[in-house]
Design a protein around this nucleic acid. Structure first.
Lengths: 123, 123, 123, 123
DNA sequence: GTGGTCTAGACCACG
DNA sequence: GTGGTCTAGACCACC
């Protein structure tokens, strides 16, 4: 369910947080579902519990999960989060498109690549 | 011509290198044009000359500039670089598109945003 | 009558104690009225009986209820409690006012907000 | 400038973050001013550098400071933050007022206490 | 020297 | 057992 890429330059806790965020936003983890415990995950991934804890703390502050002392961490049921997330993605997308155009890539070319990705995804 | 964003998380030398890379790829800096000297830039930006040197070293390694000892650093005339750069951008673009689709954004929506950016750029 | 907010950071026993305290102070629970039994509440809220017991113990220590072994827990009839409670609230209120003023909020502004709340409550 | 209250139940890192937040919002620390270094503060307060770091990380995430690797942490110049902070305070204030009224405290009484605090502050 | 990340080990409150 | 906090000590990238 979760894995660490040590060749990735981003800190481990961020990788973990991002991974869970993805699982939540894509609906793999449903609302109020329990996440694995800090210690269990730490053993599983062979890393320090503190690092997991840090990931969870960040997820909680961002509103993706809520934690109950002595019980565990659970998925936060918040539909508006998905909307915000989508807006963020689109903003990043626009920035990227702008960058591409500055380098002389036409919009037709970009659209071609979108269709290519879409087809590959369908398969 | 060059500026530093201290609130940016990326290291300063990378910001500088990226900035020059952009100026070269967009044609603002032409082939064989002389870049500002390390010392002059260091004074100008009020940062350590080592940092500038590091940026230039990276640019040279990536093939954007060539340095002549005792004289200065110059823009590398290499058309194929632009091609490589374009491919890198498009690869990043495809990854982002894939991410967007995983979050349920349709390709029509993406295309709509491309057109929006294109129009804003024309103005 | 009682409910638990798991997204609340405060411990469960404290939430329960506070809730009963409110019910007593507002007069919903009258003097010498019997509180629900520890076991019944535990089943009802689907939590550990120890947690309920802890809430009741605290309430008893603070003088809001008295317990009769083998019979149950009852509301303490003590008018002076309300007075003490009021003083506590006002002390907290003054601290908050002080904080607001340190941040440059004028007393006129605060009074305006009080009137606003008062009007909303009348409706 | 900063002190720790060990009898306070809140975690140390939160106390420190709150204290700095206050100093920034009240204007004691001006925009772009350098905060004490993580290590220096740790020695000064006789606590672990990690704890300070945590406080700073939180302050940065909340937008009160920005950090530059290898240089230090600096006060973020953001006027809109003060506004947001004020709104938060007033919301908390209204909640408290509502609570007071539920316990039978009149608005006249509350206003009287505001004036009392205001007078004490003037002295 | 400075911030940022990680590990190891410990203690506490809660349920 | 579970999350939350703290300490001690280490290593890294950056300037």
């Amino acid at each position: 369910m979760i894995f660490i890429d040590y060749s990735d330059k981003r800190p481990i806790y961020e990788q973990i947080a991002d991974r869970f965020q993805g699982l939540i936003l894509t609906g793999v983890l449903k609302a109020d579902e329990k996440l694995p415990s800090v210690r269990a995950l730490a053993v599983d991934l062979a890393i320090n519990p503190n690092t997991i804890q840090r990931a969870f703390t960040q997820l909680e502050k961002e509103g993706f999960i809520y934690s109950v002392k002595g019980i565990g961490n659970f998925v936060q049921a918040n539909e508006s989060l998905k909307q915000k997330q989508k807006e963020k993605l689109l903003e990043k997308f626009e920035n990227h498109v702008e960058l591409c155009m500055k380098q002389g890539i036409t919009k037709e070319e970009l659209i071609k690549h979108i269709k290519k990705v879409a087809e590959e995804a369908e398969e």
